[in-house]
Simulated scan of single mutants.
Amino acid sequence: MDKLVSDQAEGLRRLLARSGSRVIAVTGGSLGAGCTATVMNLAVALAQQGKDVLVIDECVGDKSVSAMLGSVRGAGNFAAVMRGAGNFAAVMRGEMTLDEAALRHALGFSVLAASRAHREGYSAAQFSVVLRGSADIVLIDAQLDQQGHLSALAMQAHDVMIVTRMAAQAITDAYACMKRLHYAHAIAQFRVLVNHVQSVEDARTAFANLAGVAGRYLAVALEDAGCIAADARMARAEELSRCVVDAFPSTPAARDFRHLAAELQYWPMRPAMSSQTPWMAPAAVTAAQHADQPSAQHA
């Protein structure tokens, strides 16, 4: 009987998880946090678990998802990636279907480059053509603007996941990033992934401290997305233009990415952030950011 109930519960979880594309924007407070590597490895891990995954690459460049995974069909080099960057705008204009525009990786997920120049000027309804397609999960490698704000495209996400490393400055930068995003977009909840950790206990302590500061000074709730082990094979996989999940699947980091991929499929589905966010004038955003709040060093 226990097994029957367990099987039924698992079936229900899977049914609920299929209620539309889950859209997750991934960003971080500082360079080197590992956002792009997180997106790539999650995409591979999710594809291995049978999920249809679309990666939206806002951070188009020579170290982007589009450029680094050389086995993406039609994207063998950075020049080819840039030539295909206009595909996003073509989808928005109805000149291409999403299936035609997205590049397919041999490991089973799709990539669509969306540089700033090609994603500006479109409405939420137009973005839905990309974000509400057939994919089970859409991962956005989100590019913050000069003010540290999300793009209108990334604001269609259901969750924002902040990636940070264990270093004190990285934790401080993650807090500052959440503070900017909170005041710019009225985001009340973030997922936090602690990267490059030596032990789970260290990661839990760092998360607890960050969550305490965010809750006290911003009234923002943080959800623990877990942690990724410090693993020398991560750097080696990058040198090979590979993902650690694919190149070195038995390593600690690969196991952690697979665990995160399995767990995120069952995160509660929230409304897209854009549907919750009241408009705030730029001057009001600036004033709010400089309100009586603690400096980032408290993180």
Rank of each mutant, 00 (worst) to 15 (best):
V129K: 14
F127W: 01
L153Y: 01
A142S: 09
E95G: 03
A135T: 10
S66N: 05
G74I: 04
E100N: 06
M96E: 14
S64D: 08
E100L: 02
V163D: 08
F78D: 09
Q156W: 00
K63E: 13
G108K: 02
V81S: 02
V160Q: 03
A154S: 06
Q49E: 15
M92F: 02
S110T: 08
S128M: 04
C59P: 07
I162C: 02
M96R: 12
G94T: 06
R104Y: 12
S64Y: 02
R119G: 07
L150D: 08
A124W: 00
D173V: 03
Q169C: 09
L112A: 07
S71Y: 08
A117T: 04
G70M: 11
M96L: 15
A90K: 12
M161G: 05
L107V: 09
M82Y: 13
R180N: 14
C177N: 12
M166K: 07
A184Y: 00
G70K: 15
R180P: 06
M178D: 01
E95H: 10
A101E: 03
Q143G: 08
G108C: 10
Q143N: 14
L153Q: 00
G50F: 15
N77S: 03
C177P: 05
N87H: 15
Q48I: 06
T172F: 10
K179H: 01
V81G: 09
I56Y: 04
M155G: 00
A174S: 05
A102R: 10
V60K: 02
D52I: 04
V81E: 07
L181E: 01
D159V: 12
D173K: 11
G121W: 11
G61R: 09
A168P: 08
D136P: 03
V81P: 04
Q147H: 14
R93P: 05
A170K: 07
A80V: 11
G61K: 06
G133D: 04
A168T: 10
V91H: 03
I171E: 12
S128K: 10
R83L: 14
M161A: 02
A85R: 15
S123H: 05
S110Y: 06
L150M: 06
S128E: 04
V53L: 08
G61E: 03
A135P: 00
R165E: 09
R119D: 02
L139C: 05
Q126C: 05
I187V: 05
D99F: 07
H105V: 07
R180G: 14
M166S: 14
M161S: 06
A154I: 00
S110N: 13
A184F: 00
A124G: 15
D136Y: 03
G108M: 01
S71I: 04
G148C: 14
A117L: 14
A157Y: 00
M166I: 07
G121L: 01
A106S: 03
A184H: 00
A101F: 08
R165T: 15
